[in-house]
């Protein structure tokens, strides 16, 4: 399988790329970070366009947080360059910091402060003046659903609310880029849903880079995924393309009640079907897994055939691979490559 190894050209068409070359929000080239003898990230290359929500996906220790810390100019890389909004993260850290809203892993907050007081402190720290700081704090309090707890001490809030305070902090100075490191970790399902919705809403105005090791999260929130393992990018593409890549172009599964012989003859005779696999089920039903030729959608074909032969059809669907499959597939592929 031919996977795009760098994020640069794999997912945006060339003319589009040329047009957008001036508006990359993040440009990372050959970024490497070593701690002692350990290489946390290894010659990372990727680009993020303005307005995208990009998910950084990888197991723990893949190098997600390290990359985010470098992008937020908290620490420098060992080699390579990273630019945010056209500014170098090492040489122009103040320009970069003004343009990003960063929520580190575990969302650290001053637990002794009250919500409004904390956000006002952060807004001023990020250079907003008195009246403007107050206005922005009011806006983000509303945006993140924090009005009712604005007077409470942060240490007394539930984890879900704290997470929202962290998000509000990242948003308060209207940054162009928002970097969120594991924004939904440790939340209950309801809280996760509301935080995800919040992140989705942000994409209207901001570019978002978020990291997670929870696969459905990227699937639900991100327009594009960068899969990271052991400090390297394994794949970078839209969730849809990644699915297509692994599922081999939309396998269709149908459960049909018909004699196996007839079915076999039928699929063999059909030009759209490249491969098929039959397995008997309960009753007369047989499960047919059909791989199409040239990525054709086989569902209407199957339906027409069953109608024509008068067979009973009880289930028809395209086999949609989850990111989990893609992830396992990719990480296994690299492991086999290494061992081989």
């Amino acid at each position: 399988m031919n996977l795009p190894q760098d994020g640069g050209g794999g997912f945006i068409d060339e003319p589009q790329a040329a047009e957008m070359s001036t508006s990359w929000m993040i440009e990372v080239e050959d970024l490497t970070k070593r701690y002692g003898g350990h290489t946390a990230i290894d010659e990372l290359c990727f680009k993020v366009a303005r307005g995208e929500i990009v998910g950084f996906l990888g197991p723990n220790g893949a190098g997600k947080s390290t990359t985010m810390r470098i992008l937020s100019s908290f620490m420098p890389a060992t080699s390579g360059t990273a630019r945010v909004g056209g500014f170098d993260v090492f040489h122009e850290p103040d320009e970069v910091r003004r343009r990003i809203g960063y929520m580190p892993e575990n969302n650290p907050l001053h637990t002794d402060m009250r919500v409004r007081e904390y956000l006002k402190f952060r807004a001023r720290l990020k250079g907003l003046l008195g009246g403007r700081a107050r206005d922005r704090v009011d806006v983000v309090l509303g945006q993140c659903g924090l009005e009712e707890v604005s007077g409470k001490v942060i240490g007394h809030l539930s984890k879900g609310y704290r997470q929202r305070v962290g998000l509000a902090d990242a948003l308060v100075h209207e940054p162009e880029l928002i970097i969120l490191d594991e924004p939904t970790i440790g939340l209950d399902p309801n809280q996760i849903r509301s935080v995800r919705q919040l992140i989705k809403d942000l994409s209207v105005k901001h570019t978002v880079l978020l990291s997670t090791h929870i696969l459905p999260e990227v699937e639900m929130t991100c327009s594009r995924v960068l899969i990271l393992n052991q400090g390297k990018i394994l794949a970078a593409d839209t969730t849809l393309n990644l699915q297509r890549m692994v599922s081999g172009g939309g396998q269709v599964v149908a459960e049909i009640a018909a004699p196996e012989r007839d079915l076999r003859a039928c699929w063999e005779g059909s030009p759209e079907v490249l491969e098929f696999n039959l397995s008997p089920m309960d009753g007369d039903y047989i499960r047919c897994a059909l791989t199409p030729r040239d990525g054709v959608d086989l569902r209407p074909v199957v339906f027409d055939l069953t109608v024509k032969h008068g067979w009973k059809l009880r289930d028809l669907g395209r086999n949609r691979h989850s990111l989990e499959d893609i992830f396992v597939h990719l990480t296994r592929a690299t492991r086999e490559e290494e061992e081989g």
Partner: peptide, 14 residues
Amino acid sequence: YSGTYETLMTAPVG
């Protein structure tokens, strides 16, 4: 210890 050092040092402050 609490991690707020990271939020502090990633704000535009010298």
